[in-house]
């Protein structure tokens, strides 16, 4: 009977308890316009404002990675009338960590690319948690070039902890793929609008982050590396690493 919320972050606990109370009242037959529920709703909103406006840096990181945050496909479904996904880098593979395709918005057509983190455990594994391989970056660049050729504006959504740090990705030229994106995207003549919708981690984010307008959604983050990655580089000792992270909390 509890409210279905995947991401139970500690600082959200007070909100959750009010939400549960509202749910209990509803199940007891209270109308959502009833005085009791309205009062709780108000309290919930006040508390939300108080909590989310006073987050510590670490809590901001957690919120940027919130499992309930909308991911790319939800933005696409909500914004556009139609979306036709295009696959592959025409070289090696199709990276599900990056999704791209042509979208229509009324009479307008545009190219959409972005990181997809996935919605549930199975989906996240399929999309590799939004961590792209060289194929993903090459697909994104290929699609931007198609957009340029046919005068389509590009909308790029960034949401990734970083480029995939794996053996295969290195073998297929991860740094080169990111570098190529950075350089080539500057030559794309159609307008590019970038939105960081959750996590903008490192070069893997910047590879899709070059544009004429760059925006960030509220409570999203953008940084040279994830806090964990940074700690791993600066503190080789795992115990000391915790110290750095604790500085945030």
């Amino acid at each position: 009977m509890a409210i279905e919320r995947v991401g139970n972050l500690q600082f959200e606990a007070p909100l959750l308890s009010i939400e549960e109370k509202i749910e209990i009242l509803k199940q007891k037959g209270f109308a959502s316009q009833s005085k009791e529920i309205k009062k709780l709703d108000e309290r919930l909103r006040d508390l939300e404002e108080k909590i989310y406006e006073n987050l510590s840096p670490w809590e901001e990181v957690q919120l940027a990675r919130h499992p309930d945050r909308p991911t790319l496909m939800q933005y696409i479904n909500l914004i556009f009338d139609d979306f036709s996904e295009l696959h592959g880098d025409r070289l090696y593979g199709d990276d599900p960590a990056i999704v791209g395709g042509i979208a229509s918005m009324g009479e307008k057509r545009l190219m959409v690319v972005g990181h997809e983190k996935g919605r549930n455990t199975k989906d996240r594994l399929k999309h590799n948690f939004g961590m792209a391989s060289p194929e993903g970056f090459r697909k994104s660049l290929r699609l931007m070039k198609v957009a340029e050729k046919f005068a389509l504006p590009v909308l790029s959504f960034v949401d990734t902890p970083g480029a995939y740090p794996g053996v295969g990705a290195e073998e297929r030229g991860q740094p080169g793929a990111i570098a190529m994106n950075l350089k080539e995207v500057f030559s794309i003549r159609t307008p590019i609008v970038v939105v960081i919708i959750g996590e903008g981690g490192s070069g893997g984010a910047l590879a899709l982050g070059i544009g004429d307008k760059v925006m960030m959604m509220k409570h999203s983050i953008y940084s040279v590396i994830s806090p964990e990655g940074c700690a791993a580089i600066l503190w080789k000792d795992k115990k000391k690493r915790l110290k750095l992270l604790q500085l945030f909390v």
Binding site: L86, G88, Y92, R109, K149, F150
Partner: peptide, 28 residues
């Protein structure tokens, strides 16, 4: 799966799919 093609399309949806791309690429 190997990144060589953009999509697989059933014959029944082929006309509208081609139409969508032709329109998208020519309009602007």
């Amino acid at each position: 799966e190997h990144g060589m093609i953009d999509m697989i399309c059933n014959r029944k949806e082929l006309k509208n799919t081609i139409g969508f791309f032709a329109e998208s690429f020519m309009r602007n």
